[in-house]
Nucleic acid binder design. Structure first.
Length: 517
RNA sequence: GGGCCCGUAGUUCAGCUGGUUAGAACGGACCGCUCAUAACGGUUAUGUCGCAGGUUCGAAUCCUGCCGGGCCUACCA
């Protein structure tokens, strides 16, 4: 019965950003997986949070006339609100400014250092004061007077500062060996290829401390230095399960993580630096890093300058939360970039939700309400047709599970909707409205089979659309403790005679304002 | 420049360890049903499978070149 614990994480989001649809998308995918795993009998630890250190935050706080801690307290709240608005079921929300994280980050530093993988040197490069960034020699251009310029046109100067380095170059072979032995470590394949070729191209040691600003985690025993933000940030995944206390029950239970979900922009940090840091610290490596693609607004990348950034709260208020959750994971093949638009949103809501599954439930339950005195009818012997539909409902979990395990959410939903299609075809073929007059017993059996199919669908869509699923299951009088995947199948089938509430549509159609006029 | 991925019906995609008449969904057209949120079901249409060569008895599926699109090519997160 007890299945393996399952630990999954979102990236921690940089507080300087306002939460947008991209953040919502990443966490949504994790939420669906977390809910799925819980219903499937796993003990789940689902982590999200905020990354609150770095020079930009320091500056933003200054500009706002606040001390950095007060500033981050405020802006990190935006991300907690997002979790609330989107009905995320995260078990923890970590902030890198928390005490527990300071301890963990310093501990991993010490572990890496104790193993001889950190050395003090100096970091030198072309620095643009205006851009606050270093540039590689190859990126520079020459101005009219021969002055070296950044790609942005800003002047650069040669800057050297003392820095601790991580001996990343030594980890090239171990990493390649690890990728080779763990072909599922990075998904999808195209990202894996990129990472492998990046590492195979050679690795340089990594500067992992800064002295140019203060808002960060001090390097142990040398507080002039602040830890490199990525070493700081990545360690949050350990912090949340109790590290450095390796006797912490959460640590032994949940580490190594089963899945780090990330956007494709931060694959390298998770698939190269992070495993290297962990190997250097002598810690076990996560099992999988999955990088999803971008949501494109009608084909254009969302950006502040284009002014086409989609905010999750706007989508939710226009279309409703559960439809948005469904849409985002069904419309775009997870792992690819994909378009979102009003037109495709409406099409999904009306075709898939209102017409297919919503109407299936409504037509079935209405017939039960009208023709069976509003109670679950007593079925007779099942025919081959009945068994065909029921077994498709019973069997679908296995397929969906393997698709979700590969983060192929769009495929999992497609698979579920095959059952919806089977059920609608079954209704037409059986024509219970005709049986009402010719063979009421047979009608009762047909309606029972439909109700039982809807029970399965209701249970299975809970991870995607928790509220809508609950309303569906309520209409079948399924007890709250009878809604896990262990209740799928014939052993927990509906009990004839159970009184049902009056049916009400669960998925309303979306009608455009203008079209409605 | 180097590397990786992609280019298949109006649209989004599947198929791609080579093998019958190239598939699905949505959209379109037509038909059926009337239980239901005017929802459901059935039938049907359009594809030089980017282009040109090659390997093979046989290629959307393998190889080469070309065209087009995207991504990666390290220390801002």
């Amino acid at each position: 019965m007890a299945k393996s614990p399952y630990y999954l994480t979102t990236p921690i989001y940089y507080v300087n950003d306002r939460p947008h649809i991209g953040h919502a998308y990443t966490t949504l995918a994790c939420d669906v997986l977390a809910r799925f795993k819980r219903l499937d009998g796993h003990e789940v630890h689902f982590l999200t949070g905020t990354d609150e250190h770095g020079q930009k935050v320091e500056k933003s706080a200054q500009a706002a006339g606040k001390d950095p801690q007060t500033f981050t307290d405020e802006v990190s709240q935006n991300f907690r609100n997002l979790a609330e608005d989107m009905n995320y079921s995260n078990d923890d929300f970590i902030r890198t400014t928390e005490e527990r994280h300071l301890k963990a980050a310093q501990a991993i530093w010490k572990a890496i250092q104790a193993n001889g993988h950190i050395y003090l040197d100096s970091y030198a490069g072309w620095y643009s004061v205006r851009d606050e960034a270093f540039y590689a020699e190859g990126e520079l251009t020459k101005g009219e007077d021969g002055q070296k310029l950044a790609p942005t046109g800003a002047e650069v100067e040669w800057v050297e500062e003392p820095s601790y380095f991580f001996d990343l170059s030594k980890w090239q072979e171990p990493l390649l060996k690890f990728y080779d032995e763990n072909p599922d470590f990075i998904g999808p394949d195209t990202r894996r290829n990129e990472v492998v070729s990046f590492v195979a191209g050679g690795l340089k040691d990594l500067s992992i401390s800064r002295t140019s600003f203060k808002w960060g985690i001090p390097v142990p025993d040398d507080t002039d230095h602040i830890m490199y933000v990525w070493l700081d940030a990545l360690t949050n995944y350990l912090t949340a399960v109790g590290y450095p206390d390796e006797d912490n029950p959460d640590y032994s239970k949940f580490w190594p993580a089963d899945l780090h979900m990330v956007g494709k922009d931060i694959v390298r940090f998770h698939a190269v630096y992070w495993p290297a840091f962990l190997m250097a610290a002598g810690l076990p490596l996560p099992k999988r890093v999955y990088a999803h693609g971008w949501l494109l607004n009608k084909g254009e990348k969302m950006s502040k300058s284009l002014g086409n950034v989609v905010l999750p709260e706007d989508l939710v208020s226009q279309y409703g939360l559960d439809p948005v959750r469904y849409y985002l994971l069904r419309e775009v093949p997870f792992g690819n970039d994909g378009y979102i638009s009003h037109e495709t949103m409406v099409s999904r809501i009306n075709s898939d939700l209102a017409n297919d599954i919503g109407n299936l439930a409504q037509r079935s339950l209405s017939m039960i309400a009208k023709n069976c005195d509003g109670v679950i009818p007593t079925p007779g012997a099942f025919t081959d047709d009945d068994n065909a539909l029921l077994s498709s409902a019973h069997a679908v979990l296995d397929d969906v599970r393997s698709q979700f395990d590969q983060q192929a959410f769009h495929r999992g939903l497609e698979t579920l909707w095959k059952v919806v299609g089977d059920a609608n075809r079954y209704v037409d073929a059986q024509a219970p409205w005709a049986l009402r007059k010719t063979d009421p017993d047979r009608m009762a059996t047909v309606l029972y089979v439909l109700a039982e199919t809807i029970r399965h669908l209701g249970i299975l869509i809970q991870p995607i659309m928790p509220d809508a699923a609950a309303r569906m299951l309520d209409q079948l009088e399924i007890a709250p403790d009878a809604r896990s995947f262990s209740h799928l199948g014939p052993d927990h089938a509906l009990v004839a005679g159970t009184e049902l509430p009056k049916p009400a549509p669960v998925f309303p159609r979306y009608v455009d304002e203008e079209a409605a006029d």
